[in-house]
Amino acid sequence: MEERIDQDTIQRLCGQAKLTLSPEEGESVRKEIDRVIGYFAKIEELDTTETLPLFSVQDQSNVFRVDEAQEYAGRTEDVLSNAPEKKGDFPVVPKVVS
């Protein structure tokens, strides 16, 4: 069967998804993804010319809440305790401006 996914595609997808694959991993992942995408392509057989996409099984439109500020019941320090690195009330990231 014709291959749909080449190594360049895998590298592009990795860049978009912020993932790195080693060259060996890259090839085995490419093969598997190519096989699965080939299988996904089965739905191309379905005639959907008159069909609209179905994003949600529910008929409801957007659900809004009243735009009112509410007290947060949790504690800031509990939220921040999950941050891998923090300073005061903020998580820290590597320098973004030089």
């Binding site: 997808l13 694959l21 992942v29 993804i33 699965v36 995408i37 996904f40």
Partner: peptide, 19 residues
């Protein structure tokens, strides 16, 4: 990783409509 890459592929420009 596999599912993220599969999902990224079917949503990417050029393949979104097809998949």
């Amino acid at each position: 990783k596999r599912r993220i890459l599969l999902g990224t592929y079917v949503l990417s420009a050029g393949f979104y409509d097809q998949y």
